[in-house]
């Protein structure tokens, strides 16, 4: 049991470090940066044109099992999709 304690302490330290670094600090302004909440995104989306809207969702990045909240502009999603469709079309032809 005692042998496991240093390992647990190390794991705990890493976990705390990961949690703290998740709230990325902005050194210039001394503020913590955070993504907008879903309600804030909705309020923003209600005020802008459809192409300017933001979509936030949980995504699991390649090489990880931990889902991450990612926010993107609808126009960026559209452009990326169009680009991928075009690439696929070229590859198939």
């Amino acid at each position: 049991m005692l042998r496991l304690l240093p390992r647990f302490t190390r794991l705990f330290t890493v976990a705390v470090f990961a949690m703290v670094s998740a709230c990325a600090a902005n050194p210039d302004r001394g503020e913590t940066r955070r993504l907008p909440t879903d309600a804030e995104v909705e309020q923003y989306n209600a005020a802008v044109e459809p192409a300017e809207r933001i979509v936030c969702r949980q995504e699991t990045p390649v090489g990880s099992n931990i889902p991450k909240r990612v926010c993107r502009y609808v126009r960026d999603i559209e452009e990326t999709s169009a680009f991928h469709r075009e690439q696929l079309r070229r590859a198939l032809n």
């Binding site: 459809p50 609808v74 999603i77 999709s81």
Partner: peptide
Amino acid sequence: KSESPGIVSGWTL
């Protein structure tokens, strides 16, 4: 999820 017509890829949840 939207009140406007037209499909946006990746919009479905």
